[in-house]
């Protein structure tokens, strides 16, 4: 059985990798979010609701505020990646949670932002539990992150299964032959007879059946997760969604922990 501390350390390190990449990408793209531009907060702040009315957010989302947020996320992530577990981990995880949330809300948060938010909050609960010697909190944190990852894969598969266009292969062919979501290679691949159909069913079945993998012994669960990481890497290559592999990878240690806890609870060895 892999110890909670080791898995928590891995979560922190992997979240750090995601944060470094996310922060660096924000810094590289800052000119597009400048005031006076299409995505400047002077215009985007006109949206309805709390976000648009908050004077604090207006300052935070001004170019200088955004730059500070991105730099802070990179610094925080570098420390999460390098420092051993300790009391400071709590502060670093709390800061990562706030920074990822704030930067995500500046735009429309994508799945990677949402998963990273979940990893940060779950790891925070687990770290609190480890520091305080409270197993219930460790359980809550592991269940939150591992549970959300399991729901994510299951829902991604099941919601495709109920759509006729996915079952027939029309949807994967459409997505992978577009410029927006595909590439030259994927368009060529799905143009072959039956390829989109087989690909679609492979993805749907693997995703829908993922919850069963939690019942596997840890080494086998790790093999399954390695396969899913490869899947994310291929998606990054084909669709350009390059932050997803790191955000989802950061949720794997908690998922391994959850699998172990589930097997122990069910007396599976």
């Amino acid at each position: 059985m892999i110890a909670s501390e080791a898995l928590l350390r891995a979560s922190c390190g992997l979240l750090g990798l995601f944060g470094l990449l996310r922060g660096a990408q924000w810094l590289a793209d800052l000119p597009r979010w400048a005031a006076g531009g299409a995505l400047g907060w002077d215009l985007q702040g006109l949206r309805r609701g709390i976000k648009g009315r908050s004077a604090l957010l207006a300052r935070t989302y001004a170019p200088t505020g955004l730059r500070i947020l991105a730099i802070l996320l990179m610094l925080d992530s570098a420390l999460l990646l390098t420092l051993p577990l300790g009391a400071i981990t709590l502060a670093l995880l709390a800061a990562a949670l706030v920074l990822i949330l704030l930067l995500g809300q500046r735009s429309i948060p994508d799945g990677a932002d949402k998963m990273a938010t979940i990893v940060a909050s779950g790891a925070l609960l687990q770290a609190l539990g480890v520091m305080a010697g409270n197993h219930t909190l460790v359980l809550a944190g592991g269940l939150w992150t591992g549970g959300q990852l399991t729901i994510a894969y299951f829902a991604a598969g099941a919601s495709k299964l109920v759509l006729a266009d996915w079952r027939s292969g029309v949807a994967p062919r459409g997505a992978l032959s577009s410029y927006m979501w595909g590439s030259k290679l994927s368009a060529w691949g799905v143009s072959k007879s039956g390829a989109a159909f087989v690909l679609g069913w492979t993805v749907m079945l693997l995703e829908t059946l993922f919850p069963l993998a939690l019942l596997l012994p840890a080494p086998w669960l790790m093999v399954v997760l390695a396969g899913f990481f490869l899947f994310h890497a291929v998606i990054a290559l084909v669709m350009g969604l390059n932050t997803y592999p790191w955000a989802f990878l950061a949720a794997y240690p908690a998922t391994i922990w959850l699998g172990q806890a589930l097997r122990a609870a069910l007396a599976l060895g």
Partner: peptide, 21 residues
Amino acid sequence: YGERRLRHALWNPRHGSRSLI
């Protein structure tokens, strides 16, 4: 959207802003 580049698998900073527009 033009042809995807290999480097976008590792580094794709403009994805978010372009997608939002």
